[in-house]
Amino acid sequence: MVDRVSVGVAAFLAVSAVAATAYAQQKDAAQEGIEAYREALQDGNPAELYEATGEELWKTPAGPKKASLEQCDLGLGPGVVKGAYARLPRHFQDTDRVQDLESRLLTCMEALQGKDPKPYVEAAFTAPPKEEMIALAAYVSGQSKGDPIAVTPKHPKEQAMYDLGKRMFYYQGGPYDFSCATCHGQEGTRIRLQDLPYIPGTKGAAAGWGSWPAYRVSAGQMWSMQWRLNDCFRQQRFPEPVYTSDATIALSMFMAANASGETMKTPGIKR
């Protein structure tokens, strides 16, 4: 998978080096350059390669049960992928949990394929088990591209998850006293030259939630929302969030519900 992607991506990286130079020279020029670059990539987001890999993983029998994921219920019934990502996170009857895409994928991999989720939870984001998760997330999220985000907490556990996400968003800790809100709680601010989405608002929440998973040009990597959140917490100087833990799902619920009604633009592309 990595080889296929790196071949496809080499050309884009060359373009990004040019964009990066402009970035250092003048901020307005940099901003324009990035916008133009994003536009130029609209028909050629390298994320498409991950989507293709993810689709193959979805449809290929694997695990002790030699089954594919095609009967996985992502909330719209077994096997329905189209539009499912735009309606996550949500409460699932069978697990009695509120789940985001990645935790739900683990449930399906365990139930349908007989796989042990543990190595998937514990692997580094750059290790093969996580590459599978990220490719699957790219595929499933691509099947909601252009759909309206439709997440309205109704089930009591969904409402509780939203509440927990809101409280988590404002929770300060660590040596720098940072919370999510330190960077994402005011409108129109940035870190260095990076614009920061205002997560409590609809537009800002959509700019964040609605564009991950995304291909990161500077890193040459495809990142899922779980990876995005993990690196936020790293920069926040927090301890590491457990993959698909409730704190990450709660924040996802907070973002998704705040973004509801806006358009899903997944998989996205970032600098």
Partner: peptide, 27 residues
């Protein structure tokens, strides 16, 4: 509090304790 009752102290503390782990110097 600015959040709803689903995030009372007991539920929130439980969530924090189950969601994070030590990594490197970040305990």
């Amino acid at each position: 509090p600015s959040w709803g009752p689903g995030a009372d102290d007991a539920a929130f503390t439980r969530m924090l304790a189950a969601s994070f782990k030590d990594k490197g110097i970040a305990r």
